[in-house]
Amino acid sequence: TAIQMDIKIHGLTRPIVEEAIARTREARLYILDEVMKPAIAEPRAQVGKYAPKIISMQIDPQKIGDVVGQRGKTINAIIEQTGVKIDITDDGSVSICGTDADMMNRAAELIRIIVTDFEAGQILSGKVVSIKEFGAFIEFAPGKEGMVHISKISKERINRVEDVLTLGDKVTVVCLGKDKMGRMSFSIKDVK
């Protein structure tokens, strides 16, 4: 409630101002107690399904290039998959904006996967993007892939990767650490 006091009206006396403030206080309390309280007694625990939301996270500034990718390819793939808006500042602050909480969380998870180095025992889900004679390449997030050797695909012996996996299959893998060549190695058969 406000009354502009700097205007030059001689008839605006103190009792008039006090009465105006008292009446507006009564009106405000009526609106809050009699109208709003029965409709919603306290703030909701979560914002509405269609309300705009924001997730903030911090990443290592050295990993910003990994999240953005060549010519923005990686970040644009995340945006396309999830429908969110992503802003990254030079200090590694990431803001994920959108209305669908599930898609926002998915985008945050993809970014976490991209900036986290794989560790032995880590379980990830991904999609088969390439099949070779010696194994399959699994994409966990845009621009982040790993290889499952043919011997680590199934508990039974297989002759061809194509007998078990096809392009586009969704799989869960466990990280085994680095192989002899320093690449990350994954297994499907050892997932618990």
Rank of each mutant, 00 (worst) to 15 (best):
I3G: 02
D6H: 12
D6N: 14
I9C: 10
L12H: 11
P15I: 04
P15Y: 03
P15D: 11
E19F: 09
I21A: 06
I21P: 02
A22D: 09
A22T: 13
T24D: 10
R25P: 01
L29V: 11
D33F: 00
D33L: 05
D33T: 00
E34C: 00
V35F: 03
K37Y: 08
K37P: 01
A39W: 10
A41D: 09
A41K: 15
E42S: 15
P43M: 11
R44W: 04
A45N: 13
G48F: 05
G48H: 08
K49Q: 10
Y50Q: 13
K53Q: 03
K53H: 02
K53G: 10
I54D: 00
S56K: 13
S56F: 15
S56N: 13
Q58T: 11
I59R: 02
I59T: 07
Q62D: 15
K63T: 13
V67D: 06
G69T: 10
Q70P: 05
Q70T: 14
G72T: 03
K73P: 01
I75N: 04
A77K: 14
A77V: 02
E80G: 05
E80Q: 13
G83S: 07
G83W: 07
D87W: 10
T89I: 05
D91W: 02
D91E: 03
D91N: 14
G92E: 00
G92F: 00
S93R: 14
V94G: 02
V94Y: 08
S95Q: 14
I96T: 07
C97M: 15
C97R: 15
C97E: 15
C97L: 15
G98Q: 05
T99R: 09
D102G: 09
M103W: 04
M104I: 03
M104Q: 08
N105R: 07
R106S: 13
R106W: 08
A108C: 06
E109R: 05
L110E: 07
R112P: 08
I114Q: 05
V115H: 07
V115G: 01
T116P: 01
G126T: 09
K127H: 06
K127S: 06
V129I: 12
K132E: 14
E133A: 11
F134Q: 11
G135L: 06
G135K: 04
G135T: 03
G135V: 10
F137P: 06
I138H: 05
E139G: 06
E139S: 10
F140E: 11
A141C: 07
P142I: 03
G143I: 06
G143E: 02
G143H: 12
G143V: 06
H149A: 13
I150R: 09
S154A: 13
S154W: 07
I158W: 04
N159Q: 11
N159A: 03
N159Y: 10
N159G: 14
R160S: 14
E162P: 00
E162V: 07
E162F: 01
T166S: 15
L167W: 02
L167V: 01
G168E: 12
D169V: 13
D169L: 03
K170G: 06
V171Q: 12
V174Y: 03
D179L: 02
D179T: 00
D179W: 05
G182K: 00
R183I: 06
M184T: 15
F186P: 06
I188N: 08
I188H: 11
I188D: 01
K189Y: 02
D190Q: 13
V191S: 07
V191N: 04
